[in-house]
Simulated assay, not measured.
Amino acid sequence: MTFFSKIIGTGSYLPSRRVSNQDLTDQLAAKGIETSDEWIVSRSGISFRHYAEEGVNSSDLAVAAAKQALDAAKMQPNDIDMIILATSTPDFIGGFPSTACIVQNKLGIKNGAAAMDVQAVCSGFMYAMSIADSMIKSGSHKNALVIGAEVFSRILNFEDRTTCVLFGDGAGAVVMSRSEVPGVLATKLHADGSYADILCVPGQVQNDAIAGSGYLHMDGQAVFKLAVSVLEKVANEALEAAGLKAADIDWLIPHQANIRIMQSTAKKMRLPMDKLVVTVDQHGNTSAASIPLALDAAVRDGRVQPGHKILLEGVGGGFTWGAAIVQM
């Protein structure tokens, strides 16, 4: 028997603390660091981001997004038999135990559902979705909860204006279920570890302390150049695998890192800008959470309709990248 996987519910959650560019400009000015709303918007397209309050972890954001996705799918938590959570900011050091297991407990899932974290930074949701798709198609699982959740505000150096203005916190989730008709039409994943140093947190835990830096480090120009190159290629690979052309796509939902990267990808694929879903202006870069956050926004405001074909794609530290073609 042939199995397919399909997204049947989406959800998202943003912390209530909304931080504007002016808020950050004032904070940095107090430290003698110059920036402005115009400087941030012109380089990234970002105007706002959300920060989690002290004591709120990735699992808390993930649970809130998961509950929305479950409601949309008309499912109860114990209908889920697999949780895959993409995060670079797990609740515990080293992701041990996994944040997915913590989410399972907080949701009250008592059926022994498999649970694991996936670490591919900003591409994490693409990796997690691809794994869930494969597991469902294999017949081993029926209903997967796939989540991207981040509290990047905890790893930002607020004396480095080139990085601290870009990132925010949030979570997005989807329920993927066994289907008689195709939903996920194709996925493609890649990585190149030779670029590990251009986007990383270069610290290590040694004897109850951090050796090196616990802050995010990014070579912005190198990341931009590589991202623009690989996103077009992997998108075309996924389209070919699905037997589609770019013109068949109803919506492009890329990782929300930088508006210039997103627009460049759409332009190279000859997709009109009105097919590009943009939330980076309101959310900032939420890493593994950005794609499901944007997808949920477009579903809930009515842009994404049943039957629409969506191109999802992401790129992140590692260096990792991936794409998926999904029919809603």
Rank of each mutant, 00 (worst) to 15 (best):
T2Q: 14
S5V: 02
K6I: 03
K6S: 14
G11E: 04
P15V: 04
S16K: 15
R17G: 10
R18P: 10
V19S: 09
S20T: 11
N21F: 03
N21T: 04
D23Q: 06
L24C: 09
D26T: 13
Q27D: 14
Q27I: 09
Q27M: 13
A30Y: 08
G32Y: 06
T35S: 12
V41N: 11
I46M: 02
S47N: 13
F48Y: 15
R49Y: 00
Y51Q: 04
V56L: 10
S58D: 07
V63E: 11
A64K: 15
A64E: 15
K67M: 13
Q68F: 12
A72C: 08
Q76S: 15
Q76C: 12
D81G: 06
I84S: 13
D91M: 07
I93A: 15
F96W: 11
P97F: 03
S98K: 03
G108H: 02
I109Q: 07
M116D: 12
D117N: 07
F125M: 09
M126H: 09
S130Y: 04
I131M: 14
A132W: 08
M135I: 14
M135N: 14
S138V: 06
K142W: 09
N143R: 09
L145P: 08
V146R: 09
G148W: 01
G148K: 03
A149D: 08
A149V: 03
F152W: 11
R154Y: 07
F158S: 10
F158L: 13
T162A: 14
C164S: 07
G168F: 01
G168P: 02
D169Q: 04
D169Y: 04
A173T: 08
S179V: 01
S179A: 05
S179I: 02
P182W: 09
G183L: 05
T187K: 04
K188A: 13
H190K: 13
A191Y: 07
A191G: 14
S194F: 07
A196Q: 12
A196G: 12
Q204H: 11
Q204F: 14
V205G: 06
D208M: 09
A209M: 15
I210K: 08
A211I: 11
G212M: 04
G214P: 10
H217N: 13
H217I: 06
A222H: 03
V223Y: 00
L226I: 09
L226R: 13
A227N: 02
V228A: 11
L231F: 03
E232L: 06
K233F: 11
K233Y: 07
A235Y: 02
N236Q: 15
N236V: 11
N236F: 07
K245V: 12
A246Q: 12
A246C: 11
A247M: 12
D248C: 01
D250Y: 06
I253M: 01
P254M: 03
H255Y: 00
I261E: 00
M262V: 01
K267I: 10
K268Q: 10
K268N: 12
R270H: 15
P272E: 12
P272S: 13
M273T: 09
V278H: 02
T279Y: 01
V280T: 10
D281K: 12
D281A: 14
H283Q: 15
N285D: 01
S290T: 06
S290R: 00
S290V: 01
S290M: 01
P292K: 07
L295G: 10
D296C: 14
R300I: 04
V304F: 08
V304S: 09
P306F: 08
L312P: 05
E313C: 15
G317F: 00
T320I: 00
